[in-house]
Write a protein that binds this DNA or RNA. Structure first.
Lengths: 256, 256
DNA sequence: CGGCGAATTGATTTTTTTCAAGCTGGGTGG
DNA sequence: CCACCCAGCTTGAAAAAAATCAATTCGCCG
């Protein structure tokens, strides 16, 4: 792990320099001139198809990942085949890090769309953060943002009824794609989810999500059709969701 | 922030050396001979009464905390005075750290019982973790454990009905006090919560929590009375909760 | 054109909330 | 020492929300 090693394979370095996710994920803490700290430990990008499993619960944890392209679902699988979506990982997101690196996985990760990942070997990342305080401190804040988002989901599930929950999730996913809240009427984003995935994220049944989306459509708020979301009335959507229009940069959305 | 400063106030050092929480929280990453890194930045212990507010949402964030004694509720406050309990902080727990140190608080913290805290100034902690990779790496894992617990709460709220949710919370809190799952029939722990707090944690109404606890009592599973929990039948409780008997050390409990 | 996963819809049941009325027990002030 | 106060708990009845069950329908793909 000597970062001063100077026999650099230039190809790998340039890989990282043109990486679209470099300004986010764990690499954001590595200045350009030190990019080899990451470039030397990362594995070749990995391409996955929809439904491909990245890792499953109880498996040995050997790698962490950055999403380069596509959507990943982080899920927990329960007794009777029940599934909970704990979070989505979108391009630029770092996932797979866990409290105890030696323990087996506590969650599963599955590709929702076709996905390209940058795998980072666990051992090397752990070695790096035990040596580089800037990367480690950045990682701590990154994970705190994940925690904040998880808290947001708890709030969503615990206090809101179906309409609000759906609206809140849609806004969260819009925000994570665009880095801003919806403003333009008839704006549209890609939303490559099934009703079942949405249901497993907000703790409802797909049937009830369908009915809820129908009502939102009938009231001219949003339309969800063919993996695409049409935000007909952004203000109405915000009102339904109970989110204040003051976005935080921490991963969670501001509440009223 | 020079850790090599040698004019040490010996009293502060010994404070930390006898601290009951030292093996946990953020201090666990600091070896005994370097304890002054913490001892020199910490503020005097602070004593609070039940219902005292430690910080509120939107306030400026100036300190992080370790719980020395007592129970703290980390909550989010919503529009119509609705409250969500995001987590509890028990003795040895570190709380108050957030993704963006410059942003206002995203949650509130309130003393449930009488509480003794060790306050750590934000600026000094942030400076420390940007300089000491071992502390920073430890903190990242600590926060990841918080995230795992938040995910556990999402699972609880999203997939389980009242009986399971209550049972799951009771086991979580037992585990966090005793570091093990309940085994002995008629075992008892202190549980200084109101029904309203329990309800706001698992996303039910106090009324429904009352009914649920009544049923559990009638079936000889647990009794909750006067801030004390009597676990009459640990096996039944585990069965109701849907938790496997394989505890993780990461802050979350293993699921079936 | 048939098949299949996903979405929709209706009817019914279950769970949870809401509203409202008592109850209880510890603490306070007379 | 007693009366009463009050937060917190309990209980019942009715309403609301969501799940469940059971058909269809839709749209894509082979």
């Amino acid at each position: 792990m000597s970062p001063t090693e100077m026999a650099l394979p230039p190809l790998r370095r340039s890989d990282c320099l043109i990486c679209p996710a470099r300004s986010r994920t764990i690499c954001a803490a590595v200045p350009e001139e030190q990019i080899d700290r990451i470039a030397l430990i990362k594995r070749p990008a990995r391409q996955l198809k929809p439904h491909d499993v990245i890792y499953v619960e109880d498996a040995q944890c050997v790698e962490y990942f950055t999403v380069l392209h596509g959507w990943v679902a982080l899920t927990a699988l329960l007794e009777r085949g029940q599934r909970v979506v704990l979070d989505f990982a979108l391009p630029g997101d770092f996932f797979g890090f866990q409290a105890d690196p030696a323990a087996p996985r506590t969650q599963s990760a599955v590709a929702i769309t076709s996905v390209r990942l940058c795998p980072l070997p666990k051992a090397e990342v752990e070695a790096l953060i035990n040596v580089d305080p800037v990367v480690a401190a950045h990682l701590a804040h990154l994970i705190a943002a994940h925690e904040a988002r998880a808290h947001d989901h708890v709030i969503n599930s615990n206090t809101r009824e179906a309409r609000q929950r759906v609206a809140h999730l849609l806004i969260e996913l819009y925000f994570r794609q665009r880095q801003q809240l919806p403003r333009q009427p008839h704006d549209t984003i890609e939303l490559p989810l099934t009703l079942a995935l949405i249901a497993d994220t907000i703790g409802l049944t797909p049937v009830h999500v369908s009915r809820t989306l129908r009502r939102l459509r009938e009231q001219g708020v949003v339309r969800f059709h063919r993996r695409r979301l049409y935000i007909e009335d952004p203000d109405a959507l915000m009102r339904v969701s109970g989110i204040d229009d003051w976005p935080l940069t921490t991963g969670a959305l501001k509440r009223e």
